[in-house]
Design a binder for these strands. Structure first.
Length: 509
RNA sequence: GCCGCGUUGGUCAAGGGGUUAAGACGCCUCCCUUUCACGGAGGAAUCACGGGUUCGAAUCCCGUACGUGGUACCA
């Protein structure tokens, strides 16, 4: 095992949006594989035909692309171990299910859903609210263990609907070493006889994951902790089918929690933060769920915040690029406990990445956003200069609209409350004269504008500070933004003078 | 109910027998800046509880509580 090439897989089922936790599972898979020069495979687990959702698979790949976590093998990227959609591998599983039955590790069960429901209902007590199809009841049900062989053959030949169930052994301790949790063990008699092959011929997750991990030569299997309870089934299947020595090493990742319990789409809606990587439009429900991308997150920030939600490198470093993560990630330092997702901290990561990355990395996205809000961008050099000037003030990419909009469109509302109480005729006189001097100014640059502003203030015997705030309101509309003279210098002489004049009429109204 | 997993400030977390129990987010105060930020300096706030073991426990052991996942012909 040690000398084999590392191969990991992410195995989503295409039933909806791609959740935070899903992306983190992808990330850890990816980091682990890339660090060891291995392969990252995406396999689509679409064995439940009733839950198929149009467009979900394509959406998952779009999200991975946005995150920059590209698979080496997948239904769209190809590879030698395909097909990579379980629905297209249907014929494979039956053989293994039959092998298990032949060896006495599994059996055919003919119980109808109604019979199953009746069993659960009849056996239900306060002590045992959810009875299982297990060693205690299997001999009372309709299966190849309880009916004669000839009868079973007949039912099979007649095409009677049936499933294949694993026969869980009695009181056997099943244990394994998880890469995160270390030794974990279970008593086989507390787990039920899970269905392996459904009546429609499709495998359940339990059979499919084992067969495909084997066939695809997976060496390390990362999955959410919600799978830990069914690990004994998978381990038994490995033992029965392919040998424990070939089983991948398991790592059960801690869950990402919401404000109350496991993080859900609902939490996002309730508390106002995204839960999916990208916008997900559920056409059947006509429901749009917001994504981190559309909320204004940079993929670098998204990856970064997910990486450190449950992992850290033991130093004080918090900002990591994908390359650094590949270098520094270690599964040993992944936390055992679930982590509550904190949107405030998530925003901080994005803010750090906005500051860290040059505008050239995200200018295009901001530009598209501006255009969608009706602002024409004709001069890219100017646009980039503006973004560079305001980027320290932005937490999300969408903040650029508010922080830089006035560089393109003059304000139509002014924070007059900030100036009116202290407004005087002397100030009006100052600004009128200032406009004249600006018109005559030969070198339109920040320091020249500032110089004449301060000199003129002195001749009017007004402190420059008394005039700077009004000037800001005139140019910006509100009490925010970079240095006023920088703004004036960028928007140009005509625009500056026009905005001052316009505002003067408002202030004096 | 049963089974599994977990538990260091509000949140993310370092630390794994002797520490003033790091750091970050958020919050508060101050400095910088006559805007808002950025940056800088401070502050409040933590080892779930109970028993052991030990000279000494946040760290090891056992209970309890709480949280969380599973208990489907869903993944």
């Amino acid at each position: 095992m040690a000398d084999k090439k590392v191969r990991v897989r992410f195995a989503p089922s295409p039933t909806g949006g791609l959740h935070l936790g899903g992306v983190r599972t992808v990330l850890y898979n990816y980091l682990f594989a890339k660090q060891l020069g291995g392969d990252f495979i995406v396999r689509i687990e679409d064995t439940d035909q009733t839950r198929f959702v149009e467009g979900a698979e394509a959406y998952i790949f779009k999200c991975l692309e946005w995150c920059g976590l590209l698979p080496d093998e997948s239904p769209v990227h190809g590879g030698q171990y395909g097909p990579y959609r379980q629905s297209e591998r249907k014929v494979l599983y039956k053989k293994y299910a039959e092998e298990l039955v032949a060896n006495g590790y599994a059996y055919y069960a003919f119980d109808t859903p109604e019979e199953l429901g009746k069993m659960r209902n009849d056996l239900k007590t306060d002590e045992n609210p959810s009875p299982q199809y297990d060693g205690n009841v299997r001999m009372k049900m309709r299966n190849s263990l309880t009916i004669a062989a000839a009868e079973t053959d007949r039912l099979l030949k007649e095409g009677t609907l049936h499933v294949v169930r694993i026969k869980m052994p009695d009181h056997e301790t099943i244990s394994f070493t998880d890469m995160i949790h270390q030794e974990v063990s279970f008593d086989s008699s507390v787990v039920d006889d899970k269905v392996l092959l459904k009546a429609d011929g499709m495998p359940t997750y339990h059979l499919a994951v084992v067969v495909d991990d084997y066939l695809m030569k997976i060496t390390h299997a990362f999955r959410g902790e919600e799978w830990l309870s069914s690990a004994p089934v998978h381990i038994l299947l490995w033992k029965y089918l392919f040998g424990l020595e070939n089983m991948p090493q398991w790592a059960h990742l801690p869950l990402i929690m919401g404000p109350s319990g496991k993080l859900s789409k609902r939490d996002g809606a309730k508390y106002g933060f995204p839960v999916f990587a990208m916008n997900w439009n559920d056409k059947s429900k006509n429901e749009l769920t917001e994504g981190f991308k559309e909320r204004g997150f940079l993929p670098e920030a998204f990856i970064n915040l997910l990486a450190v939600l449950g992992w850290n490198d033991g130093t004080e470093q918090e900002i990591f690029s994908l390359d650094e993560l590949i270098e520094k990630f270690s599964i040993d330092r992944v936390h055992k406990a679930g982590a509550k997702f904190d949107f405030e901290k998530a925003k901080w990561f994005n803010q750090e990445w906005i500051k860290k990355l040059g505008v050239e990395n995200y200018g295009l996205r901001v530009k598209e956003y501006f255009i969608s809000r009706g602002i024409e961008i004709t001069d890219d050099a100017y646009f980039n200069k503006v973004l560079e000037l305001v980027k320290d003030r932005c937490i999300l990419l969408t903040d650029f609209y508010e922080q830089a909009g006035y560089f393109f469109v003059a304000a139509s509302q002014w924070d007059t409350e900030a100036v009116k109480p202290k407004w005087t005729d002397g100030k009006t006189a100052f600004f009128n004269e200032f406009c004249g001097q600006l018109n005559a100014l030969a070198d339109w640059d920040t320091s020249s504008i500032e110089t004449i502003f301060k000199e003129l203030a002195a001749t009017h015997a007004i402190k420059p500070g008394e005039l700077q705030l009004p000037m800001r309101i005139m140019l910006v509309g509100g009490k925010f933004g970079p240095a006023v003279f920088e703004i004036a210098s960028l928007i140009g002489k005509e625009e500056t003078v026009a905005r001052i004049k316009k505002a003067l009429t408002i202030f004096n109204a």
